[in-house]
Design a protein around this nucleic acid. Structure first.
Length: 479
RNA sequence: UCCUCAGUAGCUCAGUCGGUUAGAGCAUCUGACUGUUAAUCAGAGGGUCGUUGGUUCGAGUCCAACCUGGGGAGCCA
């Protein structure tokens, strides 16, 4: 008999005949004559209830039906007599697919801490929370491709192994096939990477931006969505060593078009989640509300779905770095000396306490900051006429901080070249990038969205390690 | 990497001023119960107190180092 997914079973209105369901047991409870099995197959967060007339089944077989076991059940689909569910299955045949010894199986029908579940990441898919996150994550991946496809973008697979640390975005993971104990050496004693696989030193990518720019300067609208690797020793709830990044790059777009695209995309993704993941968001909302109970009143977050709707309903605040500094300088916490890093002069980098203040206290909604001092930003950002600032933009979200970083790119060869020299970047490794400014260069813009940071926001989870199946962080690559 | 908090049963935690045989809830097991909703009720089993060293007549408790985890900071998306 063909398996029916629980998701479609629960939506059915037809109650005639047998069905087959397969899945994993969440709980079994009952009395002398009747037992109830809550079964889940991952197609939805909801379980289907299996009703078992204990007297019609082998006692030993039923004993093995414990939390975590996989079973297949044939039975009549009927309207439920009990409260709490509309339909249920009256079991006629029950087949054990895979037992789960209750004395060894670590998941119990009770609440587990997220820290504990991280230690059993191979099994945490089987919890409501991680089922919901996994389905939501898929929906967001799909929505990203849908958004860009609907707008005429082409997806680019930028290389994962790269030969240059072009962006200077962070420490890199080396890719090498040389014997680490006995590498070939040059005469001066340094490692001879000419003998390595690619004939040069190579690393895992820290960004697909530069390659995306090359494609944008031919196809006009492109985006990448791939894995990104940073070997920074970052230990925070917002950083991963391996994460997924979305990087659109658009020819002929200026910084304002870029902001429009970023805001439109974020709102599209949030709307898509609300439209397509209602059940999972409801669960995640309850989960979050539960977690919030332990926090102080003023530290509590807005309810998840309310928060998502709030973002949709309001325009992001767009301010320049200069204005941000003005606001911060005159803010109460700055005057009262509450900031760990007091805001004094123009030119300083904004600390996360400052970004937080702007987003959570001053504007109470997402904020886009533009026109940063060129000293604190990357070499490729378009220089303004004032000579001091560049057309960079950071989109700041509550709790997360920087969810998007982007800019209009410097398209004028001489200016870009001068900046490369100023910042002591090896121009030899960037000849191909510079070439695009020599042949048919045009203004263009783009940005990078950290996919897991988006997931934090949409799911209401507070730690980035809980929105990716197998997080890679310093000292942790177990699964 | 820095600051800070924590590590006690399968899980979540309590453990007073350093003092007898280290406790609870949940989970598990056994029994009871005619439809339960994280079922309920009764009982039972379950411990290298993160590791190593030190102080002490005596350490879960005090000290040191290390390991692991949380939160904050930096780096950034």
């Amino acid at each position: 008999m063909k398996r029916t997914e629980i998701k479609s079973l629960l939506q059915t209105n037809e109650f005639n005949g047998m069905v087959n369901v397969k899945g994993w047991v969440r709980t079994k409870r009952g009395s002398k004559n009747v037992a109830f099995i809550a079964l889940n197959d991952g197609s939805t967060i909801h379980n289907v209830q299996i009703v078992v007339d204990v007297n019609q089944f082998d006692v030993k077989k039923l004993e093995k039906v414990t939390t975590g076991a996989a079973i297949s059940v044939n039975g009549q689909l009927v309207q439920s007599k009990g409260k709490g569910q509309t339909v249920e299955i009256i079991a006629e045949e029950l087949e054990m697919l895979g037992e789960a010894d209750p004395n060894k199986y670590p998941l119990q029908p009770k609440k587990h801490s997220l820290e504990f579940l991280r230690e059993i990441a191979h099994l945490r898919f089987r919890t409501n929370t991680f089922g919901a996150i996994t389905r939501l994550r898929h929906a967001m991946i799909f929505a990203v491709h849908k958004f860009f496809t609907e707008r005429g973008f082409y997806n680019i697979h930028s290389p994962i192994i790269t030969g240059s640390d072009a962006e200077g975005a962070g420490e890199m993971f080396r890719v090498s096939v040389l014997d680490p104990k006995n590498p070939p050496l040059k005469e001066d004693g340094s490692i001879d990477f000419k003998k390595d696989f690619f004939g040069k030193e190579t690393n895992l990518t820290v960004s697909g931006q530069l390659e995306a720019e090359l494609a944008a300067l031919a196809l006009s609208k492109v985006y990448t969505f791939g894995p990104t690797f940073r070997a920074e020793n970052s230990n925070t709830p917002r950083h991963l060593a391996e994460f997924w990044m979305i990087e659109p790059e658009v020819a002929f777009n200026d910084i304002h078009d870029n902001m429009d695209l970023a805001e439109e995309m974020l709102k599209y993704l949030v709307q898509y989640a609300l439209d397509n993941c209602e059940d999972d968001l409801d669960f995640l909302s309850k989960r979050q509300q539960d977690a919030e109970k332990d926090k102080k009143q003023d530290e509590r977050q807005m309810e998840l779905i309310e928060k998502l709707n709030f973002v949709l309903a309001h325009d992001f605040e767009r301010i320049t770095y200069t204005r941000a500094i003005d606001i911060l300088r005159n803010s109460k916490p700055n005057k009262k000396g509450k900031f760990v890093f007091p805001v004094k002069e123009w030119g300083m980098d904004l600390q996360s306490e400052h970004e937080r203040y702007l987003v959570e206290k001053e504007f109470k909604k997402p904020v886009i900051i533009t026109d940063y001092p060129k000293k604190i930003k990357a070499f490729y950002m378009k220089q303004n006429d004032d000579g001091n600032t560049v057309r960079g933009m950071d989109v700041l979200f509550p709790q997360i901080g920087e969810i998007i970083g982007g800019s209009q790119r410097e398209e004028v060869y001489d200016k870009l070249y001068a900046r490369i020299k100023e910042m002591n970047i090896e121009e030899k490794t960037l000849w191909w990038y510079l070439d695009t400014r020599r042949f048919g260069t045009v203004p263009h813009s783009g940005y990078g969205l950290g996919f897991e940071r988006l997931m934090i926001f949409v799911s209401g989870m507070s730690n980035i390690r809980d929105v990716i199946p197998f997080p890679r962080t310093p000292q942790n690559a177990e699964f």
